[in-house]
């Protein structure tokens, strides 16, 4: 009996590999087609940097949902690099073996530039999503504009406060462009209102827990604030939780950014938060551009900037219907 075990184990390894057939719905394997396994339909691939934070999860879901609508036109495949550039380099290189027509990439960082450029040189249309590479070898870029979002948030806060009050700005990761842009755009508008004072809060790394810890300590100081502006929703929620645990008088305004979680929209509906600004996910637009590229239509603009959407009590319900793929 014991002698049989290695054999069984070997069969098991082989079995595992062939078992993938069941997991995969998009590519017909071996079959009769002598060509590559993508069959007759062109292939569109998507290399995602990571799928870990809520925004990226919505990003993935909306991309997949849009790709499903085009299932008759092309085969769609996505791989996520778990936040590691070396993984993304390998994935892009391996994608090239499959001869895709269009590649969507959300680069992890500039380290993947070379792999993306190699793909572009090979004749693959490259659509960059949300982040840039360091060169010019891409077909089109699609992303949001954090600075504009910061400005919109600034206008909203200034109007709500009637140009007078104190704002606590809870900041995201220090050396990330999103943090800098969301702060700069906001300050650009607020500077035109001399009655508004901004307290630059700590770097809370876009994390709910850190923002909560920070807000708890801040409230101990007893300094009066009229508004909390956080660089993302997670931190706004953290700040609100800290306030609820130890409320002192009238609650300040709570304003966040991203609007990718249902939790936030629900909090806005129940009055726990006041507003958030959507940081748009570029995947669906990316798929639409890919579909047009396959028909031979180049996008009119090389850099497509997606507009933001204000979510407040009045627009919350509509936002939920318009965006069915929000993170729960």
């Amino acid at each position: 009996m014991k002698n049989l075990l290695p054999l069984l184990a070997l069969l098991f390894i082989a079995g595992c590999s062939s078992g993938h057939d069941g997991n995969n719905t998009s590519t017909p394997s071996n079959g009769n087609s002598p060509q590559a396994s993508s069959g007759d339909k062109p292939l569109v691939v998507f290399s995602q940097a990571n799928s870990q934070d809520p925004w990226r999860k919505v990003f993935d879901a909306t991309t997949k949902a849009e790709a499903d609508k085009h299932a008759a036109d092309f085969t769609y495949e996505a791989q996520d690099a778990s936040g590691k550039s070396e993984n993304q380099n390998n994935i892009i290189d391996t994608f090239m073996v499959k001869n895709p027509k269009v590649m969507l990439v959300s680069p992890n960082d500039l380290s993947v530039t070379k792999a993306v450029e190699k793909a572009f040189d090979k004749g693959v249309s490259v659509i960059l999503l949300d982040r840039d590479i360091s060169g010019e070898k891409y077909t089109c870029y699609i992303g949001g504009d954090n600075k504009q979002i910061g400005r919109e948030a600034g206008k909203y806060v200034a109007t709500k406060l009637n140009g007078k009050g104190t704002v606590l700005m809870i900041q995201g990761l220090a050396n990330v462009t999103a943090t800098k842009d969301r702060a700069d755009g906001f300050m650009e508008v607020i500077k035109t209102f001399p009655g508004i004072k901004v307290i630059a809060g700590d770097d809370c790394s876009f994390q709910r827990k850190k923002a909560r810890d920070y807000m708890e300590s801040f409230l101990q100081k007893g300094e009066a604030i009229d508004c909390v502006y956080a660089h993302n929703d997670e931190m706004a929620i953290g700040a609100r939780l800290a306030w609820d645990a130890n409320p002192k008088g009238k609650a300040p305004l709570f304003v966040g950014i991203d609007a990718c979680q249902k939790e936030v929209v629900d909090m806005i509906k129940s009055g726990k938060m006041d507003a958030t600004f959507q940081y748009p996910t570029p995947g669906a637009m990316g798929i639409q551009v890919a579909a047009e590229l396959l028909k031979g239509n180049k996008p009119k603009e090389r850099r497509i900037i997606l507009p933001t959407v204000l979510v407040d009590k009045a627009s919350a319900d509509k936002y939920l219907t318009d965006n069915p793929n929000l993170e729960k």
Binding site: I13, S17, N30, A36, M96, V97
Partner: peptide, 23 residues
């Protein structure tokens, strides 16, 4: 050998190509 056999069954034309060799 077992893995290559699996590759031969599952993704032969792509896996055993010159570009994948370099890859």
């Amino acid at each position: 050998a077992a893995l290559l056999a699996a590759a031969a069954i599952l993704v032969r034309p792509q896996f055993f190509s010159a570009s994948n060799f370099a890859n």
